[in-house]
């Protein structure tokens, strides 16, 4: 069992009347990567800013390696933050930017900088200025600069969202491998569930100021704690606040089984193709929701469809699982 690097206890943060963080608690083990996923504007960035020391929490405490760092200023915390924008210093070269990180944290040695430059594949561009390199290269340099401070924990605030999609895909795997290789403890914030699953060992679903559930992707998928998690995962049809059914168990034609079946009327509004499968976008008025249902083949030529749900497949949320 690895030791706990960062522990957050009962964190609260409010701006005027708005409660952004509401009693958040979690732990990060050494070398662990946690993805935090949540809708835009849910306060994910505020969480990172509090962890980094740019905002003071209204209530609660932060502990690093057993020491209380709640009152420690940002420049004295062993925490680095990589932003959406690379924010490289425009008057320094790639190498100087990385050296800067190492020197201000008093952890400079030449070999390390060489190693980092090598690792991010920027050795050739070490004397270039940020304006002369591409967005992806800038983001990699920003990561190397953050790593050069040898932080205990490195925080990422949607670091790929300003890059174009193909580049984003490549960089995700690269960063993931890099972090694992360097055995870095990291917290990775995104609004994209796919990205969260690629980046994190564990995924925390953040909504309404707190983590709705923390777990591995499979746990979140098979046993969502509540409606919010399930709707964010998108793999289930939510029947009511207690019950859901996996999309894979929904049939558009009457099944052969003899079990009890619940049916819902719906209207197919679109048909799209994702990952090689047709996906039917069905509006279900009775549930007041739309569902994107992967189908085997397009069978109906009418828009009206009936969803057949075997009662045996209906599951219940594990309500109040971790309270």
């Amino acid at each position: 069992m690895s030791p706990t690097t960062l522990e957050v206890k009962q964190l609260k943060k409010s701006f005027q009347e708005d409660l952004i963080l509401n009693g958040l608690s979690f732990q990060l083990k050494k070398g662990e990567i946690l993805s935090v996923v949540g809708p835009s504007g849910s306060g994910k960035t505020t969480l990172l800013r509090v962890l980094a020391g740019l905002e003071t929490p209204t209530h609660g405490s932060l502990w690093m390696n057993g020491k209380d760092i709640t009152a420690t200023k940002a420049n004295r915390r062993d925490i680095s933050l990589v932003f959406q924008q690379p924010l490289l210093f425009p008057h320094m070269t790639v190498e100087e930017n990385i050296v800067y990180g190492a020197k201000v944290s008093k952890k400079y040695n030449k070999q390390k900088v060489e190693r980092l430059l090598e690792a991010i594949g920027m050795s050739r561009y070490r004397n270039h200025f940020p304006a002369e390199i591409s967005g992806g290269q800038q983001q990699r340099t920003a990561l190397a600069r953050a790593m050069a401070t040898e932080p205990e924990v490195i925080l990422f605030d949607e670091p790929f969202s300003s890059l174009d999609p193909s580049l984003r895909q490549d960089l995700r795997y690269w960063v993931r491998d890099f972090l694992v290789e360097q055995k870095t403890t990291a917290l990775f914030v995104t609004h994209d569930m796919e990205e969260a699953m690629i980046m994190g060992d564990q995924i925390a679903v953040f909504q309404d100021g707190t983590f709705q559930q923390i777990g591995e992707a499979s746990v979140l998928h098979h046993h969502p704690a509540n409606q919010k998690v399930a709707s964010f995962m998108g793999g289930h049809l939510i029947l009511n606040e207690n019950e859901f059914v996996p999309l894979g168990d929904i049939q558009l034609s009457p099944g052969h089984g003899d079990g009890e079946v619940r049916t819902f009327q719906g209207r197919m509004e679109h048909l799209t193709y994702q990952h090689g499968h047709p996906v039917a976008h069905i509006n279900v008025p009775a549930l007041g929701s739309r569902v994107a249902l992967p189908v085997q083949q397009v069978t109906t030529d009418t828009e009206e469809v009936t969803l057949h749900i075997p009662t045996s497949r209906i599951q219940r949320f594990e309500v109040n699982q971790h309270e």
């Binding site: 980094a52 020391g53 740019l54 940002a74 420049n75 004295r76 925490i79 680095s80 933050l81 932003f83 924008q85 924010l87 210093f89 425009p90 008057h91 800067y100 990180g101 201000v104 944290s105 008093k106 600069r145 953050a146 401070t149």
Partner: peptide, 25 residues
């Protein structure tokens, strides 16, 4: 503001930040 926070997060103190980042910019 974001660029001004960056050296602080990396661990720079007030005067170091002033001379290495702010004044050059």
């Amino acid at each position: 503001r974001a660029m001004l926070e960056q050296p602080h997060i990396l661990g720079s103190g007030f005067f170091r930040q002033l001379f290495t980042v702010e004044l050059p910019l």
